[in-house]
Simulated assay, not measured.
Amino acid sequence: MSDSLDLLAPPPPAGTPDHVGIGDEAEALSAIRDPRVTLAIWRRRPCIARVDLSAMPPIRFAAPAGQVAERLAAHWAERPPEPWQVPLTQDVARLAALYAELAHEARVEVRLERIAGNGCWKFHADYVGLRLITTYWGQGTQWLPQGADADTAPQALAAGDVGLFKGRALAGDRAIIHRSPPIADSGEDRLLLVIDAEWEQPD
């Protein structure tokens, strides 16, 4: 993938806003290099099935991108071994490496947590450069096309999809507007992964 941020992305599928790049391979995320694109989506299936993580505390750490798997393995070492831990660790490490390459960051901040409430349920734009978000199970992050009015129905990532969101630090007023799906009192939960540049704090 080119290091040039002015690389133009291929046209999105019919009906997709022109500021959104979508594809079925990991390379779809490189569309975020296009100045016009504020959201790049890699459509894919979840890598793990739903499991009971009600007792798992949120995991959050900053590390060199190449050490993410090692850091996650240290967290799992404090729990009984489970078959889902290996594929989840491998996927988080792969996404951390992709993020680091596209964001030109040697270190990343990783947040992995089960969410049973509304999270950041108000539509907003993040005060970061780039943010990677994927939901391993449950409802995915909702987003709005640029210029959407109050009556516009949100679009959403599916479980497993990876979204690379441009925040205000990189896109200014064009930063992608999004929110966590409101699921409080529904009995639903989500397993959410967020990757940022180190020290860029979630809103």
Results as ranks from 00 to 15, higher is better:
His124Gly: 10
Asp3His: 13
Ala197Asn: 01
Pro145Asp: 06
Gly147Glu: 15
Gln146His: 13
Leu157Phe: 08
Val68Asp: 02
Asp161Leu: 08
His104Val: 06
Gly21Met: 08
Tyr136His: 08
Lys122Ser: 14
Ala171Gln: 00
Glu105Met: 09
Ile32His: 00
Arg190Met: 04
Leu29Trp: 06
Met56Glu: 12
Arg60Val: 11
Glu25Met: 08
Trp137Met: 05
Ile48Leu: 09
Asp149Gly: 11
Gln201Ala: 14
Gly129Arg: 05
Leu39Glu: 11
Ala158Thr: 10
Asp91Asn: 04
Leu112Val: 06
Gly21Pro: 01
Asp24Lys: 07
Glu82Gln: 13
Gln85Ala: 10
Gln142Leu: 04
Ala169Pro: 02
Asp24Ile: 04
Leu192Cys: 06
Met56His: 10
Arg94Pro: 00
Gln67Ala: 14
Ala63Arg: 13
Arg94Glu: 09
Glu25Ile: 07
Ala69Asn: 07
Ser54Trp: 14
Gly119Phe: 03
Arg94Asn: 05
Pro87Val: 03
Leu5Glu: 06
His75Pro: 02
Thr16Tyr: 03
Ile41Trp: 02
Ala31Arg: 13
Glu200Leu: 11
Val194Asn: 13
Ala150Pro: 08
Ala171Asn: 00
Leu8Cys: 13
Cys47Arg: 14
Ile176Val: 14
Pro17Phe: 00
Pro81Gln: 12
Glu109Arg: 02
Leu88Arg: 01
Ala73Thr: 15
Val110Asn: 02
Gln146Cys: 06
Val110Asp: 01
Leu144Thr: 07
Ala148Ser: 15
Arg179Gly: 02
Ala69His: 04
Arg60Asn: 14
His75Lys: 06
Pro182Leu: 12
Asp18Trp: 07
Gly117Asn: 14
Asp196Gly: 05
Asp126Ala: 04
Asp149Thr: 07
Ala106Trp: 11
Thr134Cys: 08
Pro58Glu: 02
Trp137Ser: 00
Leu88Cys: 01
Gln142Asn: 05
Trp137Ala: 01
Glu113Asn: 10
Pro11Cys: 05
Met1Asp: 07
Gly66Trp: 15
Gln142Arg: 04
Ala65Met: 13
Gln139Glu: 15
Gln85Lys: 09
Val68Thr: 04
Ser54Ile: 11
Val162Trp: 04
Arg33Gly: 01
Leu112Ala: 04
Glu101Gln: 05
His19Thr: 09
Trp121Leu: 00
Ala26Trp: 08
Ile41Asp: 01
Ala156Pro: 11
Gly119Trp: 05
Ala28Lys: 03
Asp18Asn: 03
Lys122Cys: 10
Lys122Gly: 12
Ala63Asp: 15
Leu132Arg: 03
Glu101Met: 01
Glu198Thr: 14
His178Gly: 02
Glu82Pro: 10
Glu27Ile: 07
Leu164His: 04
Ala116Arg: 12
Phe123His: 09
Ala77Ser: 15
Ile22His: 01
Thr152Leu: 10
Trp143Glu: 00
Cys120Ala: 05
Pro10Trp: 08
Met56Leu: 15
Asp173Cys: 05
Gly119Cys: 09
Val92Gln: 02
Ala106Tyr: 12
Glu82Arg: 14
